[in-house]
Design a protein around this nucleic acid. Sequence first.
RNA 1: GCCCUGGUAGCUCAGCUGGAUAGAGCGACCGCCUUCUAAGCGGUAGGUCAAGAGUUCGAAUCUCUUCCAGGGUACCA
Length: 575
Amino acid sequence: MIKDYFINTVEQALQEAIKSNKVGQMSEYEKGTLVVEKPKNPDFGDFAINVSSLARVAHIAPPMIANAIVAEISDTENAYSVVGGFINFKAGKKLLSNLVGEVFKKRENFGKPENINSEKILLEYISANPTGPFHIGHGRWAAMGSVLANLLKFYGHDVYQEFYINDAGSQIKKLGNSLAIRIRQELGEKVDFPTDEVERKNYYPGDYLVPVAKKYLSENPQLKNIDNIDVKTLSDYAKLEMEKLQRALLDNFRVHFDRFYSELDLHKSGKVEKCVDLLRKSGKIYEKDGAEWFRSSDYDDDQDRVIKKADGSNTYLTADIAYHADKFDRGFDRLINIWGADHHGYIPRVKASLEALGYDSTKLEVLLGQLVNLVINGNEVRMGKRKNMVTLDDLIEEVGVDATRFWMTMRNIDTTLDFDIELAKTNSDENPVFYVQYAHARCCSILRHVVSEQVNAETGEKTKAPMSENELKALIDGFTPDVVLPTLETAKKLVLKLEEYKSMIKTSAENRQVYTICRYVQELASEFHSFYNANRVISDDKQMMSARIALVWAVKTVLYNALEGLLAVDAPERM
RNA sequence: GCCCUGGUAGCUCAGCUGGAUAGAGCGACCGCCUUCUAAGCGGUAGGUCAAGAGUUCGAAUCUCUUCCAGGGUACCA
């Protein structure tokens, strides 16, 4: 609102200046050329617009343009100044107090943009094999994906979250084979996983199947040997158990999918075969070495890909193509996938196939995420498919859901994430999660304190609460912007930070970047802690107290919205 | 070889659609609790933005080359 006010004022003044021929050869202004930014040095002002971009059209020096524009501005409530090609702006009390008023009015909807072009979005993330527990990397996609879903929904999109279960390939057979070995071991047979380099790749040697084997035996107590049991039976059993495990974890991790889409069901539905037919009809399929190849190199891919193997079965890619086509067929305007960087090679293939099938592949956005390194006692532990795998379950149990979600979200998706377990566990300002939560708890503490009777620490003498419950309620429910005027002089930075929430939401949602929410919330917490230390909220000055209480309430509300509403991290009232 | 990410303060990272003196947190050092949570705040020190060249009035940001790190390069999933 403050930013909008500033740019509108400047644009209007520019139109006036153009009309009266004061900006050189400029004959019209194209909206959107000028952007509001934050001055690097706060002494310049709260916001600034650089008019240098107009110099090309106007053919006069930027400072002259800036001066010509400011000369047309008649607003006296806010301050404008020109330095070089910049028009600097200092917000007056009216704009600031109105902003706080907006928080009171909109509450949980503060920051939600208006008039956006709402899309029906399918967001796919994690999509792991049901062959074992999640590893730490999955945790990053889980946290980022669910936060992105919350953010895009808040922004105004219609978001459908989906988890694609890769339950159709050979790895399911491996799972069954592995369970068979675990069951034999439980039955007392002297068997173990093969040690042979090649053979061992057909098994999952992790011990997570031991409890599954035990469970299977307890349900089939008469079983003495499993020679007659079909591997598929064991595969299906283990798969179901793994899925249960994964879903329980997701639930606990506050990640909620609208649908778990089974690859196996996709095959059974005939959609994969239908997709192969459509590709054949597109004329982009040819035969070579007994297999059918898709001419993806006609698009952006660097080589062609096998769509049907020589043995007649489909590749993983084939099913994935059918899956993405099905997403479009279900009527989604936009597909967003979060994939690990190790899948980046897949993007050109899938996009090529979608083009060949007649879909608009630019509607598919793939967010590539770099992987996660675990840092334990200052030492990096590389993840990946090593034997000493730390599972996501272990991590969450160690550091908690809040810290795990926050840490997994707080870095740009393009950078490898160093997850420092020790730091994530600390309860101090070294740990950003606690720092932010503490700010929220502090706000709550003040709001509690102001309606509690005061006790003198030395004499034990009690005096009545600075505000009654009713007075507080009346202040919050009947808030008018002028209430906050007395404190604006000392709280300007805090109010401007509240204003920033709106642009943060906008850019985060539009760029699909969730780490910015974490940064914002840390900055708001920091501004609040500063405010808290510099200003006493509860005091004998009734007007000042009301003003500050209102501001504290506004800060609390925004922190709560960001933490609970977007990040799905607990905003505690006490710590 | 080719493709994708990174390389910015001791550490972890912002900034990258070109623009005002390169920012934050942690760590280090110096201060601040008779008052609403010191799990906090204020301050100081710390940088050839990997290297080189180019484009530009202007480059951490764009282009090219080189070096370093991670990932990928299957008729696996």
